[in-house]
Design a protein around this nucleic acid. Structure first.
Lengths: 353, 353
DNA sequence: TTGTACGCGTTATCAA
DNA sequence: TTGATAACGCGTACAA
């Protein structure tokens, strides 16, 4: 930050008071048209940029929103951030982007700096390793507005925007059941994360509704990544062959990619030997050796809704805390073996055009 | 921004002056150990977060860096942002993220707000539609530090970190020439963008070095997106068959994907009828029907280097303006027909594990 | 070791 | 319509 042109500089060169200059530049009513024009002109000539820092100190608002993501390269988040940006830009806010790298300590430190920087509110998706949410409780108690998105924390006084995870997991499992699969496994996510819990719940609900026998050896924690999915699937395949699942519901697409690798490596076929479905519609899902049936999440919409809700909270103290749901949709491809989707590479690779 | 705990609050509850409290919290030398401890404790009890806004106003530094990206969902940018985040976090900075959506007007407005917010420096990748760079010239003249990354603007007093685009385009073209391709086309990017110009230059240089006949009908502007590549390739295929290119160098992977679609739609084979190479190693490149030969850019490294250079500029006025290059590497797959890369789906889809 | 006065650049308030 | 003064929360410089 270098010495820059101030209101006083403009005031001095025009023999006016700072207040008149301030009023002129902010289009306040009580200022002569002629002087206003003069002020605006010299401001431009001098290369004046209003000092937002000083202004923030006075008005006790920064028009800044803190955004916390666990891992910016997960395809979900750039889309969500784009939705957030779109909304806040229109409303005259900027975002300070922080990422926790899935590390709870780093998350705490980042939220602390956001509080220090006096952001007007925070949009957050919690880190995998955060199981306490202490820092969020603290800043919420201070009166800072927080809206969670995607990975939520409930009952701490913050609104939340998420996918209808439970319902979607239920539906994709039901889809498998409807197509005569009986023995179905689940590669689950980290137990502490809301979306992982929701998806597991939906999976179990579907089993229950259709009275599928429940075998807890078929529910294995895989985490959110490819290697976790690969390892978890290999564990399943270490079971006696008669106990193998006939279909697998993975907690997300990367985990499903790992599982796919494990299955194909064993020389098994998808879906003929084992059907497989994912969750998230990763950009690579349709390009896999066996195009992956999955659930498409509308990340952009999640980001938009979260930003809108946060700004509503900021601008209206009485805005009610609530959990919003952005609906997802089933994307049926080959890996579930339930339809006539062509396993023709040409088609499968380019149906997105 | 809500009323919050201040230095004065702490001072009052302890019957100390603000200065003692300030010193205690900032670990300054001249303060009694006992009082320091008391201060730190009550600060925690009262939930004190230092007001960074007020501090910034005094010290004329915000420890904030503005980041301008043209389109956050382009796979390059999340990687680059991650690299930036990694560096600035360690150095105690935060980033304000803005995106232009490739729109020059929005870019200007965003850079203006960054200047108003008194960021200590700006990392920018310019919008496609920006051909003047006026706003950058202006803020640089004001003394604001700017480092461009990926899409650069030269000779306006800013450092730049980019891929060795020209050299890489030269090499990938040379690679085709070495494998006996003679008639080679180029799907170029927007003329105004530095990386597009560099890649075209490298392409032409290779033709020249190897004395390939130059046919300007074989250089078509495709832009950076799939549909542009699709349309441009179709235009090439409208030429008399004898004039068709035997190989195509696309300005980036999305353009190559579009071209691939156009070629396959015509019932032609890749690489047997037309070889094709891209640029950027998009996450989808290896999953294409014909795995795409391309150039891998190290976006994370670009982000890191740019952030490091910017911070060097900020912390040392005499840091010299220079153009840094992050080396890219050729990734040989099937689409160029130059190697023994197996067109086996299983292998090709999972060689990244 | 601790405290006081002042200034950072702006807006709100009240007076002219 | 314009101006003077105080205030936002903190750090610097100097005094006690």
């Amino acid at each position: 930050m270098v010495k820059r042109v101030t209101l006083k500089n403009i005031a001095d060169t025009l023999n006016l008071s700072m207040m008149t200059v301030s009023r002129a530049l902010n289009n306040k009513p009580n200022v002569d048209e002629e002087t206003k024009e003069k002020v605006v002109r010299t401001a431009r000539e001098l290369g004046y940029f209003p000092n937002q820092i000083a202004k923030s100190l006075v008005i006790a608002k920064t028009h800044t929103i803190g955004v916390m993501v666990p891992e910016i390269t997960h395809s979900f988040f750039p889309e969500a951030i784009k939705g957030i940006e779109e909304v806040v830009y229109k409303e005259g806010y900027n975002i300070i982007l922080t990422h926790s790298a899935e590390d709870a300590k780093r998350e705490i430190s980042a939220i602390e700096t956001l509080a220090s920087r006096r952001v007007d509110g925070i949009l957050a998706s919690v880190a995998e390793s955060d199981t306490e949410y202490k820092i969020y409780k603290q800043v919420i108690n201070m009166g800072l507005h927080v809206v969670f998105f995607d990975r939520c924390v409930y009952n701490i006084g913050a609104s939340c925007v998420s996918i209808n995870d439970e319902e979607s997991a239920f539906k994709i499992t039901e889809h498998l059941i409807n197509h005569k699969y009986k023995r179905i496994a689940h590669l689950s996510g980290p137990k502490s994360i809301s979306i992982a819990k929701e998806r597991l719940k939906g999976f179990l609900k579907a089993l229950k509704k259709y009275k599928i026998v429940y075998d807890n050896r078929l529910i294995i924690e895989a985490g959110f990544h490819e290697t976790g999915g690969y390892n978890a699937m290999n564990k399943l395949l270490e079971l006696p062959k008669k106990d193998w699942p006939r279909a697998v519901v993975a907690v997300n697409d990367p985990a499903a990619f790992g599982a796919m690798k494990a299955i194909l490596e064993k020389g098994l076929r998808i879906p003929e030997d084992i059907a497989l479905v994912g969750f998230s519609d990763d950009i690579r899902a349709e390009l896999m050796p066996i195009p992956l049936t999955t659930v498409k999440q509308h990340a952009y919409e999640v980001g938009k809704a979260a930003a809108q809700k946060l700004i509503a909270h900021i601008q209206n103290k009485k805005e009610s805390v609530e959990n919003l749901i952005v609906k997802s949709e089933l994307v049926i491809r080959n890996s579930c073996g339930c339809n006539d989707y062509k396993n023709n590479l040409y088609e499968s690779s380019f149906n997105k055009f």
